[in-house]
């Protein structure tokens, strides 16, 4: 009960932030009614999905300060669990998604145990490696469709059990619900014991250990929470796209994007991943549709995208939220 209260309690934020949240929420609810086109709806769905990923990453990457670059493997686990169970045994989404989460969490414990013996660059590269190994396996495993991927069966009629709808609006509201669950969870998380302990670990590992914190275990817990978040998003991707392959679910660039959104927005803040996704997803999409399609300009969109990453990391490593906070401090 108290946990629920903590999750819904935003009172320690400034007034401006709370008003911002309300306006943002009204916009989210009203979005499908203000005559949005199908392209903008897709962008919004992507935005909510990546916010969800980013909030998950923020537990271990932002609050815990670990450079985790292997989240894509959990997108893969989530989406493949949902897709395969649906194709093989016709298991409804609502059953397969929790199973996907369980598998992701179980897998994250197995991987996390050796992984968190490592620190710094060793850790960062090892997370990439684990993700690439899984991708290699799925790329070559004929049983799961190998590199060709798998298509989900399309139903004739909309089916809530299998999350099949005619209109994107339903998917929009579903991912929005997930987004809010994630937001409330994170609002509780940042105030929880684990949240505090992780921030201590990020600040000073030796001191954290002297305060009775089992560093490795804390990191593993945060890592598996992050993995659960990402697996949920993966499951959604499967039913939304109706087609998945290793390249779209387990690619290194996806892992990087997830971490990048949180970083760009501002790691270790509740709003960071949302701001990052709000910035990068539309940019990615619009650049892609305006420039990517033009003849002779292939690659320009990603060059701009990459240049942006470079500029942010060199000049404002604390992200957009860092800039905002700087201005606020100056105001005082």
């Amino acid at each position: 009960m108290e946990k629920l209260k903590d999750a819904l309690d935003f009172s320690d934020f400034s007034k401006a932030e709370r008003i911002g949240l309300v306006i943002f929420s009204v916009f989210l609810f009203a979005f499908p009614w203000i005559g949005a086109g199908s392209f903008t709806t897709t962008v919004m769905i992507q935005f909510l999905l990546f916010s969800l990923f980013g909030m998950g990453w923020n537990t271990i990457g932002g609050y815990g300060g670990q450079v985790e670059l292997g989240k894509a493997q959990y997108v893969g686990i989530g989406s493949y669990t949902v897709a395969l169970m649906m194709v093989w045994w016709k298991v409804p989404f609502w059953v397969s998604m929790p199973i996907g989460i369980l598998i992701a969490v179980g897998y994250s414990f197995i991987i996390g145990y050796p992984l968190f013996r490592l620190k710094g660059h060793y850790f960062a590269i090892a997370t990439i490696c684990t993700s690439l190994v899984l991708k290699d396996i799925f790329d070559n495993w004929n049983l799961v469709g190998a590199a060709k991927g798998i298509e989900l069966p399309i139903h004739d009629h909309p089916d809530f059990l299998y999350m099949q709808f005619k209109s994107d609006t339903y998917y929009y509201y579903f991912i929005m619900a997930l987004f809010y669950i994630a937001l409330f969870y994170m609002n509780w998380f940042r105030k929880s014991k684990l949240g505090y302990q992780l921030r201590m670990i990020k600040d000073d590992e030796d001191a954290a250990e002297s305060l009775g914190i089992d560093i490795r275990w804390c990191k593993i817990k945060a890592y598996s929470i992050a993995s659960a978040f990402v697996a949920v998003g993966g499951g959604f991707m499967a039913v939304y796209n109706l087609y998945i392959d290793p390249a779209s679910t387990m690619e290194l660039s996806l892992s990087i994007k997830i971490a990048l959104m949180a970083m760009l927005g501002g790691a270790a803040s509740l709003w960071g991943p949302i701001i990052g996704a709000a910035f990068l997803v539309p940019l990615d999409r619009f650049l892609g549709s305006w420039l990517g399609g033009q003849k002779g300009l292939t690659g320009i969109d990603f060059m701009i995208y990459a240049a942006l990453i470079m500029i942010v990391s060199a000049y404002q490593p604390r992200g957009i939220w860092g800039i905002i906070e700087q201005f606020r401090k100056r105001g005082h």
Binding site: E2, D6, K191, S192, K193, Y196, Q197, R199, M200, K202, D203, D204, D206, A207, A208, L211, G212, I213, A268
Partner: peptide
């Protein structure tokens, strides 16, 4: 003492208290 910027004094000390309790209050 490592000079850190991530947590306030109160939050620092709370991490210590969390060693013996799970409740934030």
């Amino acid at each position: 003492m490592k000079v850190t910027t991530g947590m306030t004094v109160l939050e620092n000390v709370m991490v210590g208290s969390f060693c013996r309790t799970n409740n934030r209050n």
